[in-house]
Design a binder for these strands. Structure first.
Lengths: 341, 341
DNA sequence: ATTTAGCACTCGCTGTTTAAGAGTGCTAAC
DNA sequence: GTTAGCACTCTTAAACAGCGAGTGCTAAAT
């Protein structure tokens, strides 16, 4: 168990390191107004904190820097509680300069605002359109063989895909198929359409469609979804201005990571509510081992539908960033739900 | 006018510099098998070529590097003519591993292939959907006030937007409106819909719609387009591996440029047919002053609809890259036109 | 039992010097 | 017209010294 003094020193040291990005020595700490101990005393404490794994040295006679464990402890126990900074909330309202009308614009602007405000890289993971409910679907032929299938969701999102019209399918069957889908499956989530059909509608299909066999294959083509979350970025190159990534060979993997869709999706996906912090190797990817990821989820009708995240060096301004992300995600939630009135 | 020997030396020097990225000295050139002159002779020629503005020195006693003018001359007059390398054409056919069915996938893959093959950054400027012709349109209400307007083009592309339904508009008018649009304006380019209506259909509207006044405002909302070209990137971070951009302060502006939509659109747009090369300051933007941009256009039914481009250092492998871009753009054209059978 | 002053020691950083190497321009000879 | 020779320039890398920041330990002070 850490003493009061150790806690205090640890916090001061990490605050200082976050601010100045340079190893912090005993003298620096002891010079602070609110510290009454001499450098020698501090040195003893620092040595202890190092033994406990909260601090590290860059070389034998350097000042200390926080270890990953140090940051973790800082975030979990030393951060002035969030409620303190409620003052900042309301801020973000001002930030949305233009009135945004569509969700996509909201996500895009949120990402930009966040990265501008923090100088880190931000990512918004948009809602998975496939989780939205079918409002209306339609098939529009564009040539003898090709057609476009269109699915409109309750949120006003439009999914579309080109499909090949098999010669074998009867035009009348096609029409009936669309009608059945619209009548029976409105309100069902896109992703569930296919299973619902399998389970509940095969009888209906059999009854109404002339060529039930071929229609099945066609349905599979029609309703085979691929992932549809969208990522919105802000400040992709902000990493370059972080002192710890001033080295090209260090940034390259990072930037490559940012450009790799599935890695990013995995990184940024989070089912937890509220704000979460993942530090360094907790991100479980080599390229992210010197980064922290702050995740906040936004909701719609109380349901988690996406996240807004910040990616920066492990030495992040956690305090500022966490409260910012907290309020911005709430703001996003509010606005999103306003849309669907 | 340059002598044969000067032409030869210039070409050899630029070839060498492109390959090794290091100032080329007289000794290096004279050592080549096909050169019979001594370093001293070469030195004289180099001094002349420098006076003429084709070469530069990095410092008083360094070897020479090509100037912008040098590259321009090289590209215009010293490049083995394209037809020579026809052998490479056909290659690109093999490169498309998966069979792509939608245009977007084709663009995306083309960009990836190109950047992989060259280690430069590639960009495909997709066709402007607004130049495509209306196949079918529809308005689907999603709530009491909101609706989604959907426009399907002859190419199977779907444009959609959310619109506010004014209370003042009659549901029956809305239906008629959609019908008129579909009957009278199929085959018209999306971008032209509004003017066509103004010019030709006001009479029709007046006759069929109860509340013509309000409909006009609504139409403006419905048919006010914003630019819709899409950019597809490949190898965004390839710049980082180019020796000339090993410096962070040099890459940063470059990467920022790549992320700025309108700058990129401008950079990559080109109405010229075939392959064009823009070197250094010819790109008219500070950030691009050390880059060359190679542009190739692809067509549909003979009409220029987009470009595929490569961005790299002014020291580019022009020969390889130009012929590659030439054949890839042709391949793209072929595949695109196959779609619309 | 803490705390602190003092001191020897370790690194990293900066600036200087040095030497090697690549290349040039010019001159005079071929 | 070509080339050998040479003095000169500039860059790069290595070696070295000195400074400053910081540490750990010990012994004295509180």
């Amino acid at each position: 168990m850490l003493t009061e003094r150790q806690l205090f020193i640890l916090r001061v040291l990490i605050d200082d390191y976050i601010k100045h990005v340079e190893p912090v020595g005993s003298r620096t700490i002891s010079k602070r107004e609110d510290i009454t101990y001499s450098p020698a005393t501090i040195r003893n404490e620092l040595a202890d904190l190092e033994d406990l794994g909260f601090l590290e040295k860059t070389h034998t006679s350097s000042g200390r820097i926080p270890s990953e464990k140090g940051y973790r402890f800082y975030v979990d126990h030393l951060l002035p509680s969030l409620s303190m900074s409620e003052g900042e909330i309301g801020h973000s309202e001002l930030l949305f300069t233009e009135k945004v009308q569509e969700a996509e614009a909201l996500f895009d602007q949120s990402a930009k605002i966040l990265s501008d405000l923090t100088n880190y890289t931000s990512v918004v993971l948009g809602p998975n359109a496939l989780d939205m409910k079918l409002k209306h679907m339609q098939i529009i032929p564009i040539s003898s063989q090709m057609a476009v299938a269109i699915f409109v969701t309750n949120t006003g999102h439009v999914e579309n895909r080109q499909i090949v019209l098999p010669d074998t399918i009867e035009p009348s069957d096609l029409e009936k198929l669309v009608n059945i889908l619209n009548e029976r499956l409105a309100g069902v989530r896109l992703i569930e359409l296919n299973t619902r059909i399998q389970k509940e509608l095969s009888a209906v299909f059999k009854k109404h469609l002339q060529d039930y066999q071929n229609t099945g294959v066609f349905l599979d083509q029609l309703l085979l979804w691929s992932k549809k979350e969208k990522l919105f970025y802000g400040g992709k190159t902000n990493m370059l201005s972080q002192p710890e990534f001033r080295d090209l060979d260090k940034v390259r993997p990072l930037l490559d990571f940012l450009e790799t869709r599935d890695l990013m999706e995995k990184l940024v996906s989070s089912t937890e509510k509220g704000v979460t912090v993942r530090i360094g190797t907790e991100n479980e990817h080599e390229a992210m081992k010197n980064c922290s990821v702050i995740n906040a989820s936004y909701t719609m009708h109380g349901k988690h539908i996406g996240t807004i995240s910040l990616i920066g060096p492990t030495r992040m301004e956690y305090k500022k960033v966490i409260s910012l992300l907290d309020s911005l995600s709430k703001e996003m939630t509010t606005r999103l739900n306003d849309f669907s009135d």
